[in-house]
Design a protein around this nucleic acid. Structure first.
Lengths: 166, 166
DNA sequence: CGCTAATCATTAGCGCACTAACTATTTGAA
DNA sequence: TTCAAATAGTTAGTGCGCTAATGATTAGCG
């Protein structure tokens, strides 16, 4: 991936909307999507060894914290639609990391449960966060600051949701 | 900026990996992907009025700066694979915003050019950055800081790319 | 109790985004 | 000049991620 020199363009400080506002290199949304794809891409060689894609890794993190969980619970935890999670879980089941069976007591919901193999995978996964921090050359403090900044940004999108109504 | 200090006495935060490292809520990659999807999602109602998806909007920004451009130039500017851009351009052509024709002088490359309609769309697009800043409740300074943080993160992934070779 | 409404998960359809494989063209070196 | 290598773009295949529609089950109200 070759993005333009990261140190090149800086947005103007303040003032009225200018023609430069439409410059690609000034767009936060652009920097954000490239950063997201780049970081996820950096995980790939690491997660390949676990046989997981990055979205699948997030689901496993979710289940290592608590299993079984329903599709709805997982989708809420990951801020994804159930329709996105559903086929992803089928692939994790095919990989032998989870089982999917109807919940007893409520035939609507699905009990998504770690297999022994899925639970065991956690041992190898414990190395992932440290490995990635080292690869990106970030320390815990920097990660924490970026994490906090992302959470504030997410919160901003929640309160700015008037749809197309205004 | 912040290089690990060899003389530091290894406080808890800079120290050994803990079990909490695998908590979903601590993952920067998770916050980053959610932020990216959330911000792009916030653009949707705004871009719908222009008849553009967010990736298509980025291509248009690219062409409003310079037209014609080849597929390779666009793909470099957006840090995307040509294989991603190719079908996207076909849809922009179907929408009437661009034309695609073989470049004269080099039959291999494609001249991607704004149509009059595509060029005119820029007028409406000038409002987008300001609208989005307002929606997210961010001022120029905050946007600038986040933008810079994302660029540093992107740069970090560039220097941390040993593939699976080590 | 019975029926409507809500809830849960899945499927279908569209559009990215990536890798790998392929065609066409151009370059450039023997 | 000829032919291998490089370059430009497209296509195929897989996997997200979203919305909308569907089928199944449960909750809850009259």
């Amino acid at each position: 991936m070759t993005v333009a020199d990261p140190t090149a363009a800086a947005p103007p400080e303040a003032g009225a909307p200018s023609d430069e506002d439409l410059l690609l290199e000034h767009q936060l949304c652009f920097a954000l999507t490239v950063a997201s794809r780049s970081v996820v891409g950096a995980y790939k060689p690491v997660l390949d060894k676990l046989g997981l894609t990055h979205p699948q890794y997030l689901v496993m993190l979710c289940l290592w914290e608590s299993s079984p969980r329903t599709v709805r619970e997982i989708s809420d935890a990951l801020a994804q639609e159930p329709a996105t999670i559903s086929p992803l879980l089928r692939r994790l089941e095919a990989a032998g990391y989870i089982t999917r069976q109807r919940a007893e007591g409520n035939e609507r919901s699905l009990a998504v449960r770690l297999t022994a193999r899925g639970a065991a995978l956690r041992e190898q996964a414990t190395a992932v966060p440290g490995t990635m921090m080292a690869r990106l050359g970030l320390d815990r403090e920097q990660v924490g600051e970026l994490h906090a900044a992302m959470m504030r940004l997410i919160a901003a999108t929640r309160t700015a949701d008037p749809g197309d109504g205004g």
